[in-house]
Design a protein around this nucleic acid. Structure first.
Lengths: 253, 253
DNA sequence: ACCCGTCAACTGGTTGGACCAGTTGACTCA
DNA sequence: TGAGTCAACTGGTCCAACCAGTTGACGGGT
């Protein structure tokens, strides 16, 4: 049992969190006006500057639209927010209106991972291919320890995506892993099937080294589908249960 | 010729932009300390609060790490920034250290679009399928006007991604389109091949309506590859020319 | 000579208040 | 009835002060 560092949230962090949750959970309709900064600062009993800093962050996330003179209005986050919102949703404690977020993240990981493997086999620099082989070795070296394997696996995939030379994939990967939803920090037992398949990992690395784009894509797809489709199936099983959000997948046997 | 609205940048917006560009362009090494808030406010000749608001946005983007008492340090954005950074890079005027961003965005669009089409055919609600058919009709109705076709095409893909039910795809799509790099606002002539293929669009819609997941994926992949691989080829042709950034692709014949 | 506690000089965090600059809508006058 | 006006909002900016952590140099102890 390890202790996690105590998070010291500043005032504006807390205001940010509350407003974010309120918006994402749908408490404000799209295009509805948020209370004025002065009003919010009175409500939260903080200074107006703290509120303003929080609003800036919400603006950066694509959740609100501010205009001098006019009111600050809530945006439809499904239409305007970027992938970083997934990163921010980690801290959201109340039930999200999106029960499928865990599945969705895994699907995206599978999709991007497979294409990155393809591109990597196709055009990665020799150094990048060597780095991938090394990463596989490090992964295989910790083989009994699931937690460390998960960590090494993540590092390996980062190498592969870096090798693909696609910045967009890399940034998306950051978004998905920083919001450690389901992929990293919360490894459902289902993920062990993928994690334990050392042979497939090694094959993938070899195919990339060899330049076999189609093979690497196929291997990566099969490997990632182990977790992604499992999650999708689990979601189908628990479909339309309302409370079964993306957060309590760990209860599975 | 239409006039675009004049952007009224606030002071903190400008500070944000400058710091963002400075960081992304590599003027600060990773883990290097940014000047203190007081110093920055003196340099830019603005109030410290304006600097703070800008720093908050940088923090939200994953570009800096702030800690009370300690200095604000620059992060390695390739390791910590999310996909929203692509959105923010639109405003960056100086040459980016990433010459392939346009190609990368198109590759990601192709990858996600194809998978979304698959999922959409597999599990979209009847209403969503109907909405896609309608979107194709609207697209086909403006067929000679390339600008309006591009707009309708974007709306169609949004419908498809919404139909896939994958929130992560939807958010990523927002990130990619909001940063209108190459995909939307700046349609390279190469894109016309994809845009003009009305038949493929219609076929895609039909396959989704019919529930033909594999077919929809194949059609979408082929359609999106028209632009994506063209861009990749163009990048290969202009490889290692330094100045040939993602911004001036429109000069191609 | 070396180690370690102390403390001043940083850093960011927070507050209050004042004023500027746009937007909005009600209200007035032609 | 219509257009213009203006007061009452909204967010944007600034100043000044103080609180709360971090850092590193300095000096006294061993």
């Amino acid at each position: 049992m390890t202790f996690e560092p105590i998070s010291r949230q500043s005032v504006s962090d807390q205001v940010f969190g509350r407003l974010r949750d309120a918006i994402v959970s749908g408490r404000y309709a799209a295009d509805e006006a948020l209370p004025s900064e002065r009003e919010l600062s009175a409500t939260f009993e903080v200074n107006r500057h703290a509120v303003r800093e929080a609003l800036r962050r919400l603006q950066q996330l694509g959740l609100v639209r501010v205009s001098q003179g006019g009111a600050t209005r809530v945006l439809d986050w499904r239409a305007t927010a970027g992938l970083d919102l997934a990163m921010a949703l980690v801290g959201a404690e109340d039930v999200l209106p999106v029960a499928t977020l865990g599945r969705d993240v895994l699907e995206m990981r599978a999709c991007i991972g497979a294409d990155a493997a393809r591109l990597c086999a196709e055009r990665a620099a020799p150094g990048a291919r060597a780095a991938i082989a090394e990463a596989v070795d490090r992964y295989a070296a910790v083989v009994p320890d699931l937690a460390r394997m998960a960590e090494a696996d993540l590092a390996l995939w980062r190498r592969i995506i870096e090798g693909s030379g696609n910045i967009a994939y890399l940034l998306a990967f950051n978004s998905l892993t920083a919001g450690a939803i389901a992929v990293g920090h919360m490894p459902a037992p289902r993920r062990t099937a993928e994690l334990l398949d050392v042979g497939a990992h090694r094959r993938l690395s070899d195919q990339i080294a060899w330049g076999d784009a189609a093979g690497a894509q196929r291997t990566a797809r099969a490997l990632l589908a182990l977790t992604a489709t499992g999650e999708a199936a689990a979601h189908d099983r628990a479909a339309t249960q309302g409370e079964a959000g993306a957060h309590d997948e760990s209860a599975a046997p």
